[in-house]
Design a protein around this nucleic acid. Structure first.
Lengths: 244, 244
DNA sequence: CGGGGGGTTGACTGATGTCAAAACAGGTGG
DNA sequence: CCACCTGTTTTGACATCAGTCAACCCCCCG
């Protein structure tokens, strides 16, 4: 693995200059290993740090005042997480590992020099933020306007596509690290109903379930009922500043 | 009104330098007036432009493949909209006016020089994007985990707070420019059920409705059932680069 | 062996959607 | 000023999807 996991991800979009790569590596110089279930930040904690995921899965969630939970997003290796901490002095969401993980924390003040010295990286940070925003609007439409079956399908397709994006060995199988309770908290359903919907998807021949894994049998059909739109195919980087 | 509406909004956060203000004004040098119902960009159109709202309300939405609509966000004066266009070559969402409006379009390539010459503005763009991302996660939690009554309440509180944020004359009354159909598309409900929920809120003494306006009678109670969190109180700008 | 967490299933409940009709409002043309 | 038209709001009756509650299973782990 190279010096920076996040750099590796960005290299899929542009070729970084040595100085840019160096700046990113500096952000990742102190990796930390975490056990499953570790809370990285809790909602309303001081929001001093941002993190890059080197390995493992994490998720972000909020707790509502009746105690229910909404899972906001799954975070996979190579992602910059907790970036909302840049805007607030208290963390707006909880970050927690879904399995053993390695993450690289850095103080948000480190972003100052990145923005000062590397305008192209700044623009890439901005673009990544926008892409994530759009991913959230896709989920908003999923929760607001589609059936329980579609929402579960959307979660599965989304994970599959994102895993494949940065691990070329993934084809049609995902090791699901979420309980049905957690899938429910992500899709706005109850665990019981998630179970029913998984059974339906399975009976319809769209997925198979074996020992904690999900095998996608008919991805086009699954994507169709999920209302899935592949946003990654269409990134536009033509307006980026020159590398420094 | 000053040269730049967006600059005016940012000035509520920091004091801009002359050069910064100039750079923003250049983005707003060609205002355009639009009638109610004008589509600024349609989903999948070429995504060349970004816009600043000078006056009027707009909204963004997507259409799902069964024809239903999800309204993603309302856009009020002073906001930068269509910013997701920076990341993609095709627009991920439709932008449409909810009344007569004045907006300032500019080509996304103009952002290049902003990022190159004004690192602090770049950082502010990033922070604004993060704040919007969090606003979306709040809505995600609303749609995923709260009742119809709460969702309608959340919409009302959100509009009220945002109007007040940049128009000091607003106290407890909002001129609602949305039909109940549109409120439904924003909250993931049907128009009929929105109507029922508005009646309930009204009967509970939380709001009054008169000739297209909503008067909020008990804002704390409304905010409580809406699960409202005021994010604006807590912005953190300490890591920003120096002004140039 | 025993306990706990997660998955699975069935019976029932309840919130929200659907359909339909009527009242209402605003705009247009005669 | 009226008649009409169209879109919106309001209300009722009914249907359905998803939630609730409870039981049982399985598996892992102590």
């Amino acid at each position: 693995m190279s010096g920076s996991c996040f750099a590796e991800r960005l290299e899929r979009l542009v070729t970084l200059s040595g100085a840019e790569r160096g700046a990113l590596e500096r952000l990742e110089d102190s990796p930390r290993t975490l056990r499953r279930g570790t809370i990285l930040v809790r909602e309303n904690d001081r929001a001093d740090e941002i993190y890059i995921v080197r390995s493992g899965w994490l998720m972000s969630h909020v707790i509502l005042n009746d105690g229910s939970r909404q899972i906001l997003r799954l975070h996979l290796p190579g992602e910059l997480i907790g970036s909302a901490n840049t805007a607030f002095s208290e963390a707006p969401e909880t970050l927690i590992t879904l399995g053993d993980a390695v993450i690289c924390p850095f103080d948000k003040i480190a972003l100052r020099t990145v923005f000062e010295d590397h305008p192209r990286l700044a623009a890439l940070f901005f673009i990544v933020a926008q892409a994530e925003r759009v991913a959230l609007t896709d989920r908003l439409a999923s929760l607001g306007r589609t059936s329980a079956r579609s929402r579960v399908a959307a979660l599965i397709v989304d994970i599959l596509v994102r895993l494949r994006l940065f691990d070329d060995s993934v084809t049609d199988t995902i090791p699901l690290r979420l309980t049905q309770e957690e899938i429910g908290d992500a899709t706005g359903l109850t665990a019981v109903h998630v179970n029913r919907m998984m059974r339906v998807l399975s009976e319809d021949g769209l997925i198979d379930r074996r020992d904690g894994q999900i095998v996608v049998r008919d991805e086009p059909a699954l994507a169709r009922i999920a209302n899935y739109v592949d946003r990654y195919a269409d990134l536009d980087l033509r307006w980026l500043p020159r590398a420094r």
